[in-house]
Structure formats: C-alpha cells, structure tokens
Design a protein around this nucleic acid. Structure first.
Lengths: 151, 151
DNA sequence: CTAAAACATGACCATTTTTGTCATGTTCGG
DNA sequence: CCGAACATGACAAAAATGGTCATGTTTTAG
C-alpha cells in the first residue's frame, strides 16, 4: 500500500521539468544528479514517461528530454499511472466479477469510494501548480532563515 | 499501491466474525473454508489480529477465535493496520525529516492530504455496519433473483 | 490423567516484484 | 564519421509476498 520508487522518481523528474519554461530540454544525467535518482534507472523510467506522452525525448548531441505537454495539464496521478499502471487499492476492484462477493460485499463499496477519493486528490493540482507552490515555499523558508541568522 | 492478500484475508475473517453475535466463537478452519483463505496462512494472520486485540483466541477443545471488541468499534483501517502496519502512501511520509525536500515540496503535502482522506474513508464505517449492509444487500439480490426465476 | 482438539510458533521456501546494472544499439548534430 | 545522447533488452541482487509444515502448547471432556 505504497508508492514505488519508480513512481517516486518519476514524479521528481517531472516536477523538475515542470519548473522550467515549457520546451526546455534537460539531460537525464543532470536530473538524476540533482534529484538523487540512479541514472540508469531514470533512463528506463523516462522511456515509460515518453510512451505516455508526458515527456518527449531526443537523441543525439544536444538531445535530452522535455515535457510532452504543458505542466498545467499534467497531474501526479498521470505520472504515477504512466509508470505503475492504473491504480487499484484492492484486488477486488481490478476487474468486475473477479471477486464472487462483488455484488453485495460492502467492503468492496468502501474501497471503491476510497479509490475515487484518492484519484481525486492526486488530480486536484497540476504539476505546474505544485512546482510553483514549492518554489514559493522554498523562497519563504530561505528568507525566514536569513532573518534568523541576521538577528 | 495495493492491499496485500494478508490484509484482504484479515478483513474477510473479521467481517465473518462481525456478522455473528458478539462473543460467538468460531474455528479458524471453518472461516478459512467459507472465505477461501489458506488455512495455515489465516492462522498466522489471526495471531496478528489477536495481538492488536481485534480478536481473542482460545486453545483447546471447543476453542477458536472471537471478536476482541464489539464490531461497532472496529473499522477496516484497524484491521489492515493490525496486519500490515501503519499505512503510508508515500515513503516521504513515513517519518518527518527523511526526505530532504520535506519542508517545501508540495507533492509531499498532496500525499499527506491523500493519506488523511484515505484513512478517513476506511474508518467511516464500522465492521458491524459493513456486515449488516452486506447482509441486507445479499438478501435483496436473492429476492430479485427469485422474482426473475418465478416470472 | 490422558487423549484429542484447537491454536501458537518459528523455520522454511517458492515466486514475484522491485530496484537496479550493464552491454550494446540507435539516432542525431556538427 | 565522431561523439553525444537516449533506447533496448538481458541480467541479477534483494526484498516482499504468500504460503507450507513440523513441532509445541493449552484446554477440556471423559
């Protein structure tokens, strides 16, 4: 019941891209250094992100990766599902009819509700918003720190 | 990002107990047959449930397991956490300060929000309610089926 | 007090998933 | 054609999952 490292790394990389002007190309090696992601692992993850059109990659000199669509249109859920596949909190929810208690079991209903809510929250903010808010928060913290050390 | 079989089995067993009058003793072998749970596996799970005081087990002739507290006071989250430990949707949430981006990363905030909501839903109904509602729903379905076959 | 019934404990194990690494290939620009 | 960058696929170590099994302990009926 937890996000995998793949998902975690994918979100980090996407947040990195989302903080830059749309179209900016970066190299996987650089992202991996800045966000503590094993480089070769990130390479594999980036292929999945590209398949989901979340990023576009370009080979060759001056190549790299860039966002495949504006950060305003991408959510954390998009990123996770690109890497981990569709989210199902409970195996009973994977496919109708798999669980013989499907029709009447109210635990099933509860899980369905939980899953909907989870997805709702994970799509409630765009990567653009998250990146921007993080930037602001970071600046606030730095300022606070400077004031303290100055005093 | 999914409930384990342990968790799933635990919930099934607890629902079984919750549908019976408080204090009713049942045998693990019977529960395992009725709910398609590998018997030896359920035995191990039941130890964990007992440690969390969700059930009480008694050895010896006429022994078995029974609820450790009224089904009205137990939630699905209780059961899951007894078996899987505390739920953390994201590794960053496990322990403050583990993630160096903790303080400013807004993805962190989003996960925290999601986790709270998930727990909220998984505690929104007692096992007693879930068992009762399932019973009702099952009866409704049966009746509907009889009407159809009669017509 | 003894036998049988029931759960407890802990060792063990197969499989799958996760989290990578690496060698090699491909594409592109200059 | 060279070097930079990503792609692909094989490989593998480690951890988690989902069990099984032998043995031990507790309880009670008789």
């Amino acid at each position: 019941m937890q996000l995998t490292m793949s998902g975690e790394y994918a979100v980090r990389a996407m947040i990195h891209l989302s903080a830059l002007p749309f179209g900016t190309v970066v190299q996987i090696a650089d992202v991996s250094k800045e966000w503590n992601i094993p480089e070769n692992f990130l390479r594999k993850i980036s292929v999945q992100l590209a398949r989901a059109d979340l990023i576009v990659s370009q080979r060759g000199l001056n190549g790299g990766i860039r966002l495949g669509q504006p950060a305003e249109r991408i959510t954390v859920l998009d990123v996770i599902e690109a890497v981990e596949g569709n989210i199902f909190l409970n195996k009973c929810l994977v496919c109708d009819g798999v669980c013989p208690r499907d029709e009447w079991c109210q635990v099933h209903t509860l899980w369905a509700e939980a899953q909907i809510k989870l997805k709702e929250i994970l799509t409630s903010k765009s990567l653009a918003q998250l990146a921007a808010e993080s930037f602001t928060r970071k600046a606030e913290l730095n300022e606070a720190r400077q004031r303290t050390s100055a005093a």
